[in-house]
Simulated scan of single mutants.
Amino acid sequence: MMLTNGGSACAAPPSTTTKTGKATFYDLAGTSGNCSFEVPADDLYVALGPSQYSEGASCGAYLDVTGPKGKVRVKVFDSCPECPAGHLDLSRTAFKKIGDEIDGIIPIKYKLVTNPSTPAPISVRIKEGASQYWFAARIDNHANLLSSVKVASGGGGFKTAHRTDFNYWLIDAGAGPGPYKIKITDVYGNTATLTGIRMSPGTVQRTGVRITGGSTTVTSKTTAPTPTAKATTSPAAKKPAAATPSPSVPSADPLLESASGLPDALSPSEVASGQPLVDLAAAEPGASDC
C-alpha cells in the first residue's frame, strides 16, 4: 500500500491485486505499535515499511498473507522504518502460521482484504490530554481503510479531523465539550455516525456499529457510558482494507473499557482534486533485504 497523490492514480479505491514479497517477524517487547491500537487478541498483526504504512493511512486495514505453510490474515498495526515495499514484518504468531520460525525470512504473497470481519464493532478512544479545546480520537474496528473522520459537538456542525502518523484524528482547535457525533467514512463510501461519544480521555468507548458492506449509512444511538479503570497508551518508538449492500446495523449503547496500550468517501470531484489513496498495487517489493 502506497500513498499516492494526484492524477489518475487516485481514480479508484485501493487495489486488491495479489503481490509477492517476503516476511520476517518481530516481538513488541512490551511496547505498542505505531497505529496506537491495543494488541489484537489473536496476536495476528503486521508492521509495514514507510511507503506502505503511508503515515498511518494503512492502520486498521487487513492483509491476507500466504507463505510456505498456509495463509494468515493480519491487521496493520505498526510501522517498520527499515522495510522496503513488499517486506512485511509479522508478529511471531502470524509468521509461525505460514512459515518455520527457524527460517527467519520467507517468500510470501499478500493482498488487501475488502470488507473483512472485525473482532468487535467500531470503538473510539479519546487521547490523554484531549479537551474541548484540542480533540484527538482513535477509531478502531473500521474494517476498511478510512477516508475521513468528522466531529460535531452538541448541536453544532461537523468539523473535519486530520490523521496523524500514530493514527489519531485531530482537530487542533478542538471540537467543543461534547457529547460528540463522529461521522466516519471509508474509501468505499460506507459511513457510520456514532453519537453520544464523551470527552473521556484514556478510555475505549465501544459502539454496536460495524461499517462494512455497500455504501450504507448506519447510525449508532448511544447513551452516557460508565467508565472503568483507565490506563494510558502512547505511540511506539520501535517501529515507526468491493462492497455488497448490507442492512443498517442495529443501534447499541457504547461501553467503556480500560485501554492500554483518506475526508468523506471520495466524490468524483475530490478524486479529480488529488485526494490521496492507499494503493497496494503500487507497492512492488524491492530486491534488497532489511
Results as ranks from 00 to 15, higher is better:
Met1Gly: 13
Met2Val: 12
Ser8Pro: 10
Ala12Lys: 13
Pro14Asp: 08
Thr18Met: 03
Thr20Met: 09
Gly21Ser: 02
Thr24Arg: 03
Phe25Trp: 13
Asp27Trp: 06
Gly30Ser: 03
Thr31Gln: 12
Glu38Phe: 04
Glu38Thr: 14
Pro40Glu: 07
Asp43Asn: 14
Leu44Ser: 00
Tyr45Trp: 08
Val46Cys: 02
Val46Pro: 02
Ala47Trp: 01
Tyr53Leu: 07
Glu55Val: 15
Ala57Leu: 14
Cys59Lys: 04
Val65Glu: 07
Val65Leu: 03
Pro68Leu: 05
Lys71Gly: 09
Val76Trp: 01
Val76Ser: 00
Phe77Arg: 00
Ser79Val: 12
Cys80Glu: 07
Cys80Pro: 07
Asp89His: 05
Leu90Tyr: 00
Ser91Leu: 02
Arg92Asp: 01
Arg92Trp: 00
Lys97His: 06
Asp100Gly: 03
Glu101Lys: 00
Ile105Cys: 10
Leu112Cys: 10
Thr114Glu: 08
Asn115His: 08
Thr118Ser: 06
Ala120Gly: 01
Pro121Gln: 03
Val124Thr: 07
Arg125Ile: 15
Glu128Ser: 14
Glu128Arg: 15
Ala136His: 10
Asn141Gln: 13
His142Asp: 05
Asn144Lys: 04
Leu145Glu: 07
Leu146Val: 09
Val151Ile: 06
Ser153Thr: 14
Ser153Arg: 06
Gly157Pro: 06
Phe158Asp: 14
His162Cys: 07
Asp165Phe: 10
Leu170Gly: 14
Ile171Pro: 10
Ala173Pro: 05
Ala173Gln: 12
Pro177Leu: 15
Gly178Asn: 10
Pro179Thr: 00
Tyr180Phe: 13
Lys181Glu: 12
Ile184Ser: 01
Ile184Tyr: 04
Thr185Ala: 14
Thr185His: 11
Asp186Ile: 07
Asp186Asn: 10
Val187Asp: 03
Val187Pro: 09
Ala192Ser: 11
Ile197Val: 11
Ile197Thr: 09
Arg198Val: 14
Ser200Met: 13
Gly202Phe: 02
Thr203Asn: 09
Gln205Met: 06
Arg206Tyr: 13
Arg206Gln: 08
Val209Cys: 08
Arg210His: 11
Gly214Gln: 13
Thr217Pro: 15
Val218Ala: 06
Thr219His: 02
Lys221Phe: 12
Lys221Ser: 14
Pro225Arg: 03
Pro227Arg: 07
Lys230Ala: 04
Lys230Ser: 02
Ala231Val: 08
Lys239Ala: 15
Lys239Phe: 11
Pro240Leu: 12
Ser246Glu: 04
Pro247Tyr: 09
Pro254Cys: 09
Pro254Met: 02
Asp264Met: 09
Ala265Pro: 14
Leu266Thr: 13
Pro268Gly: 11
Glu270Pro: 05
Val271His: 08
Gly274Trp: 09
Asp279Asn: 11
Asp279Tyr: 01
Asp279Arg: 04
Leu280Lys: 06
Ala281Cys: 07
Ala281Pro: 02
Ala282Lys: 05
Ala287Trp: 10
Ser288Tyr: 05
